[in-house]
């Protein structure tokens, strides 16, 4: 069976009477990397917050792996998805404590999982370092490790490389790709960087003023977009 991992139908999120997100139809396929691009304020973060149960939509329905998300989603559902934010949110403790945080919430013994994941993000041997004293790139990799260690079915990334140097950007992109390929994790990634979308994503969606005006396979999005506004965006020429 190849049902989509997320299905959004007529989803509207209204803040103060204004619809900041208005998605008629969106299916996130199981095991794909979907990149969402769009100008600031388009509603990208809002979309991710809905996908991670941080908010419930004002209107419409979101189906998560076959289950319509109720108003007050049960914990086991919530625990199958997680988000890495643009600003790494770390506890003022050691790298190990940070990475094992999600496991301790679930009463899972860390065993080899923490070391394994730190190895994958290139932070092996840094277990005892104070997380808040690392460099920006290292902190973001700790944040990514925190997400990966709980083995989510859906990994949501909100501009995870926005403030990083090319070396760390490359590192994080390869970790994300590897996670998708080896674990089959469904990934939705918000990015301002169209080139990053092109390098990583299977499909790309363009959000403008809360509307998903283009959603196509990556090659198609960049070579022959249907919407003229997507063409401008894809060439990196949209001024915003």
């Amino acid at each position: 069976m190849n049902r989509p991992f997320y299905r959004l139908a007529n989803v509207k999120q209204i803040y103060n009477g204004r619809a900041v997100l208005d998605v008629e139809n969106l299916a996130v396929e199981r095991g794909e990397i979907l990149a969402i691009v769009g100008p600031s304020g388009a509603g990208k973060s809002t979309l991710l917050r809905l996908l991670n149960f941080l908010e419930t939509p004002t209107e419409g329905e979101i189906v998560f792996d076959g289950t319509p998300i109720p108003r007050d989603p049960p914990l086991d559902l919530i625990r199958r998805a997680t988000t890495v934010f643009q600003r790494p949110m770390l506890l003022n403790r050691s790298v190990r404590d940070n990475v094992s945080f999600g496991l301790s919430l679930r009463n899972i013994a860390p065993d080899g999982r923490v070391a394994d994941v730190l190895n994958r993000v290139g932070l092996a041997g840094m277990e005892t370092a104070a997380a808040r004293e690392l460099s920006g790139g290292e902190m973001q990799r700790v944040a990514l490790a925190r997400a990966l260690v709980i083995r989510p079915d859906a990994l949501l990334l909100d501009e995870p490389t926005a403030n990083l140097d090319p070396y760390n950007v490359g590192l994080i992109e390869s970790i994300v790709r590897e996670q998708n390929e080896s674990q089959g994790t469904t990934i939705v990634m918000v990015t301002h960087n169209v080139f990053q979308a092109r390098r990583l994503a299977h499909r790309v969606g363009l959000l403008l003023n809360g509307n998903l005006i283009e959603l196509s396979p990556t090659a198609e999005f960049f070579d022959s977009p249907r919407d003229p506004r997507a063409a401008v965006f894809a060439r990196g020429e949209m001024a915003y």
Partner: peptide
């Protein structure tokens, strides 16, 4: 920082865990 809370919530913390492990130390 609200995002610190949201990040813990996104990682699967319950209200109590959120309070105990994130809010209380801070």
């Amino acid at each position: 920082d609200v995002q610190l809370e949201e990040s813990a919530y996104a990682e699967g913390a319950t209200q109590w865990q959120l309070f105990r492990h994130v809010m209380l130390p801070l």
